[in-house]
C-alpha cells in the first residue's frame, strides 16, 4: 500500500486555451478524512474535481488515485476507476425520469448482476442511511431541494466507493437541511471508511465537519490547515474568507481605471 494517501496531486496545471485555471497544485488526501476545498467563485475548485474524476486532462502534473495516475488510464480502466468514486453534483443531478428507488439502484443495475431482491434490500439500506427510506416511490420532482441532495448522496454511495466528491453540497439549502447534509457527510465518511472531498464556499458549516482545509485562489493553494488552524489564521486572505469581509486581499472592486477618469471628472476640471 502506498501510504495512507488515497489521492496525491502533484504540480497540477490546467488551462482552457490560454487561460490558466490551475497553476501548480500540490495536495495529498488521506483515507477516511473529510477534506474541504474552499475558494471564491470561479477559482477552479470544480475544475479540480473534474481532474480527479478524469473528465478532463491536466495540462501538466498528475492526479494519482489509489496509486494510479488518472489521466494516463485507458477508457475502460478509467471507467473501472470511476466505480470507486462517487460524486454529488451541485443540485443533486437526479435522473428526472426515474423514481428515487431507481435512481439509487441505477449503478447496481448498470454495473452488477445482483438479483432484483438483493438490489431492493441494498437500495432500502442506502436510503435508510440518509433517512429517506419512506420516499423510495417518489419521483425527483416531488422532492424538496434538501431531500433531492440526500437521495443523490444515497445514490453516490450505492456501490460503496472509496471517494466521494461533493460539488457545492450546501448551495441553496435552508439551515436545517444544511446541517443534515453536513452531518451526513461526516457520518457516512466515518461509517463507510471513505474519503470525502467537499468543494464549498460555505465556511462555517464546513469547518464544523472537515478534517483539513485547502484554500484555492487564482489557481494556487493560498492556504491550508486544520479547521482549528484556519480559524486562528492571521493570513489576510484566510481571515477575509473565513470572516466574510467585504474588502481585503480579494478586492471588492473589479480592476478598473480610476473612478474619476471613468466619470470624466478629470476632463471637466481641465
Amino acid at each position: 500500500m502506498t501510504s495512507e494517501n488515497l489521492i496525491e496531486i502533484s504540480g497540477l496545471n490546467f488551462s482552457y486555451g490560454t487561460r490558466a485555471i490551475l497553476k501548480g497544485i500540490d495536495m495529498t488526501m488521506q483515507r477516511g478524512k473529510v477534506i474541504a476545498i474552499m475558494g471564491g467563485s470561479g477559482s477552479g475548485k470544480t475544475t479540480l474535481l473534474r481532474l480527479i474524476g478524469g473528465v478532463i486532462e491536466p495540462t501538466s502534473g498528475y492526479v494519482k488515485f489509489a496509486g494510479q495516475v488518472v489521466h494516463e488510464l485507458e477508457r475502460d480502466a478509467l471507467f473501472k476507476l470511476r466505480r470507486k468514486m462517487g460524486m454529488l453534483f451541485q443540485f443533486g443531478a437526479l435522473f428526472t425520469d426515474l423514481s428515487v428507488f431507481d435512481n439509487v439502484a441505477f449503478q447496481m443495475r448498470e454495473h452488477t448482476n445482483l438479483p432484483e431482491s438483493m438490489i431492493r434490500d441494498l437500495v432500502l439500506m442506502k436510503l435508510h442511511a440518509v433517512g429517506l427510506r419512506g420516499a423510495h416511490h417518489l419521483m425527483p420532482n416531488q422532492l424538496s431541494g434538501g431531500m433531492a441532495r440526500r437521495v443523490a448522496l444515497a445514490r453516490s454511495i450505492a456501490l460503496d466507493p472509496m471517494l466521494i466528491m461533493y460539488d457545492e453540497p450546501f448551495t441553496g439549502l435552508d439551515p436545517i437541511s444544511l446541517s443534515v447534509i453536513g452531518n451526513l457527510i461526516r457520518r457516512l465518511t466515518d461509517a463507510l471508511g471513505m474519503t470525502s472531498i467537499v468543494v464549498t464556499h460555505d465556511v462555517q458549516e464546513s469547518l464544523k465537519i472537515v478534517d483539513y482545509v485547502y484554500f484555492i485562489a487564482d489557481g494556487v493553494i493560498a492556504a491550508e490547515g486544520t479547521p482549528h488552524e484556519v480559524r486562528k489564521s492571521v493570513a489576510p486572505f484566510v481571515h477575509q474568507f473565513v470572516h466574510g469581509e467585504e474588502d481585503g486581499p480579494v478586492p471588492f472592486h473589479y480592476p478598473a481605471q480610476s473612478y474619476q477618469k471613468d466619470l470624466n471628472l478629470e476632463n471637466t476640471r481641465a
Binding site: F79, R82, L94, F95, E110, A152
Partner: peptide, 21 residues
C-alpha cells in the same frame, strides 16, 4: 429538450461519473 435538460442539470455528467456512458 430532454437530452438538453439532462445535460443542463448535470444528469449526463453524473452518469458519466458513475462510469456509465
Amino acid at each position: 429538450a430532454e437530452i438538453g435538460l439532462m445535460k443542463a442539470t448535470e444528469q449526463l455528467s453524473a452518469m458519466s461519473m458513475m462510469a456509465v456512458d
